[in-house]
Simulated scan of single mutants.
Amino acid sequence: MFTGNITMSFRSRPKGDAGHSHRKSLLEAHAARHVERLLDVVGGEAIKFGIKLVDCDPVSMDAKVEGFSSHYNLRVRSDEEKREALYRYNSHISTKPVSGWHLHPGHIIKVDGSFWVCVSPACDLVPNQKGKAAINESIVAKIKPFMAVQLQRRSKPLGKEEVNSNTFVFLKGQDGKVNAYSIYDGGENPSPVWRLFNAEQFGVFEIDPVTKTAPLKVRYLCGSTGKLTLRTRRAHVIAQLRYEYALNLIQKLGVEMTRVGLDYVSPS
């Protein structure tokens, strides 16, 4: 079945470098679907095993006795410890180590000390394809245009409503500490900061096996005195949002870019 599906997909493939990228993307997609099927089978058994473990915990029978958490010294007492545990959990469920071989929605990129999330659709990020999107003849220039939204760090503790607003990213730094970032700056009339970047070599990268990050060279336009200049910067893909969390940010930016300005007058 796996080989048959791939053969059907390859019949109308493009040629040359575009064909190579096309085939690699198809193989990646087919492998992901089959792994998902395996996880569906294994996942059911893992859930049954997890329920057995919970049932073995003495706390499940009597909340007053000491359970597994006390044996492993898993006690969360102070508000700071609770917040750290919450941030770590949110980071675990929403992010993952960098994967893939080219840019995807949700890749978090560090450029000049700032963090940006790639929010271009996956179909627009396949190397050697869509050479007229955003930049004309981008294939000739061997670049991949992509949109990214900036992450603004929040230093103050987040409240329940803020966490549930679905506008935050919980990112683990090199020091092991998890910090909260938002696509909004927290001002009176917050608005996401977005930018059009151009990744060299079509956004293709190799992940460093030690740092688990991927080097990337990007270009972007910047205003100068009475003119525009093109800046080139070395960047790194340092983390990745899980797909549904990346789609959430894409939707947020889509709402921002399709908003309608109205002429209401507020009370003075």
Rank of each mutant, 00 (worst) to 15 (best):
N136Q: 13
L158T: 07
A133E: 14
K177Y: 01
G43W: 08
E162R: 10
Y72G: 03
H20F: 02
P127T: 00
T213P: 02
K24N: 13
K212H: 12
R259G: 02
L247I: 06
T213H: 09
L26Q: 12
V54Q: 09
V265H: 15
V204R: 05
L221V: 01
K15F: 07
H104E: 14
D40A: 13
R83W: 11
V98F: 02
F197G: 04
T213M: 13
S12K: 06
S12P: 00
Q152I: 13
F202V: 01
E36A: 15
N73V: 02
W194C: 09
A32V: 01
V59S: 03
A199W: 09
K96P: 01
D62L: 04
L230D: 06
L125V: 06
L230S: 06
E188M: 10
L53R: 00
R11M: 15
L27H: 02
E206G: 03
L216D: 04
L27G: 14
K142A: 10
E137Q: 11
G254Q: 07
R75H: 04
V117R: 00
D208H: 07
R23D: 06
Y87I: 12
A148Y: 01
R83C: 08
G176W: 07
F10V: 15
K52V: 01
P105N: 07
F197D: 01
S138L: 10
Q201I: 02
L216P: 03
L158R: 08
S224G: 08
P127V: 05
S182F: 10
F146W: 13
G16Y: 05
L125K: 01
V98D: 11
R33V: 15
K96G: 06
D62T: 04
C56L: 12
R23C: 05
D55K: 14
D208W: 03
V260H: 14
R33P: 03
V140M: 11
P145A: 09
H92Y: 14
T229E: 15
M147E: 10
I51P: 04
D263C: 06
F68Y: 06
V210E: 15
I139A: 01
E66Q: 13
T3Q: 14
R37D: 15
K24V: 09
G106K: 08
A18R: 09
E66D: 10
S94L: 05
N166M: 11
P97N: 06
V260L: 15
I139R: 08
V163T: 07
G16K: 10
A134G: 00
H71A: 09
K52W: 04
S155V: 05
K252Q: 15
S25P: 04
Q251D: 13
H20G: 01
